[in-house]
Design a protein around this nucleic acid. Structure first.
Lengths: 221, 221
DNA sequence: CGTAAGCGGAAGCTGATCATCCGTTTGTGG
DNA sequence: CCACAAACGGATGATCAGCTTCCGCTTACG
């Protein structure tokens, strides 16, 4: 796959590459995928030149981080599904994990819900869809059990996670850290609530997250 | 107050001023408070020069928009409180209003929850605090009635609104428009939920929204 | 050890946004 | 209806943040 041609990296080069990806992951989570390349280099304790040699354009770096990330999500999801026989419990466990900054904030930063870097790379794109399918399965099962309200879709779930974990840089740290956990929990309560009145609008299905970023572009003029 | 000294504006000037504020309000809601001055001028059908004469710096414009906005919020809140004898119903009505882009998106864009332009202008800052106090009153009343879960604070409510209405430019429009309404409603259900398990972390009180933007600044380096 | 791969970071480039300036247009009071 | 100050508009030049390149020095590896 990715480990194809090209002479294998020199030892120090490999080490630096990992450092860079790690730094990028942190910074993306902290400040969004738009952080200056130079800052990433600094955090990785590496010169900009090195960064550019390994990732000639930003997208490649983003994709490298995203690949790691999606794989991790898939693993977490499978684990949750395996360890919790009950779908709704599994789903809740999964959602709660997004309270961790490295999961939640990254989800928002990489716009997991809405392709972007994803469309470019077929492998990545497919991995993402696969993960979404995993979640979708849990969602349907939980709804079949009557534990999850029926008027929400998998897309809703994923969008909500993105919204609630999106980083508010202005917030005093001592508060900010714990908010995602609070709000995710609150949302879970809402998702379990006996839908007295159904939600307005249309559920966002898993499939709605697939094609996105078609005909988008900033409408204005 | 604001209508003080200085020879009264010429008729066309006054008209333009209003246009500018209106344009700014729209654009802030659509794309955040950072939109280029030039774009605001264009939307207002006015030259940049005109814009700069009236609002020599961006903050003044932001404050003009914010002043309007906060007043409107206060009015809405009072209206809700007056027309609905039940506090929780009033609160729900209020929250639902934020599904309107001009309310919700602006709330996020102006960072109503977290001062910014507010600190500079005492009047504005005070108006904001007054509004928050109004909401706070409803929150406490609703909690006293047992209709609103006790483990949330007014700050939580306001932050949630900001998060859920924050504009996702990448989202296909046909979906995006109706999402805030869905998610606010879902959250209301969560807020009313009998708190089986209390939320993790500490409630964010109204007073926590006051001092914010102290010792904030991006920690890194 | 010799060599090629890798490193770092100064320096120049670019596109975007700000903010000014001045010739032209337009209300308004007389 | 006129004269004049106020207001307009948008081209223009200044700024700036972030992107990339480039090249002399360093280091892993056979």
């Amino acid at each position: 796959m990715t480990t194809s041609d090209a002479p294998p990296l020199r030892a120090d080069a490999r080490r630096n590459r990992e450092r860079i990806v790690a730094a990028a992951r942190e910074l993306f989570a902290e400040a969004g995928a738009g952080v200056p390349m130079e800052e990433i280099a600094r955090r990785a304790q590496v010169g900009v030149g090195t960064l550019y040699r390994r990732f000639p354009e930003r997208d490649e770096l983003v994709r490298a981080v995203a690949t790691d990330y999606i794989e991790r999500l898939a693993t977490l999801t499978r684990a949750a599904a395996d360890e919790e026989p009950d779908a709704w419990r599994a789903l809740r466990r999964l959602v709660r994990r997004f309270a961790e900054p490295q999961l939640g904030a990254l989800s928002a930063a990489l716009k997991v819900a809405l392709p972007d870097a994803f469309i470019a790379d077929p492998d990545l794109s497919q991995a993402r869809l696969h993960w979404i399918a995993q979640v979708d399965e849990l969602v349907h099962a939980a709804q079949a059990d009557g534990a999850l309200r029926p008027d929400v879709g998998t897309g809703d779930l994923i969008l909500l996670i993105s919204l609630l974990t999106c980083h508010l840089p202005e917030l005093p740290v001592h508060l900010g850290r714990s908010l995602p956990a609070r709000y995710l929990e609150l949302t879970l309560d809402g998702l379990a609530a006996p839908s007295a009145a159904p939600l307005p609008g249309v559920p966002v299905a898993a499939s709605d997250l697939g094609a996105a970023s078609e005909g988008v572009t900033r409408g204005a003029t």
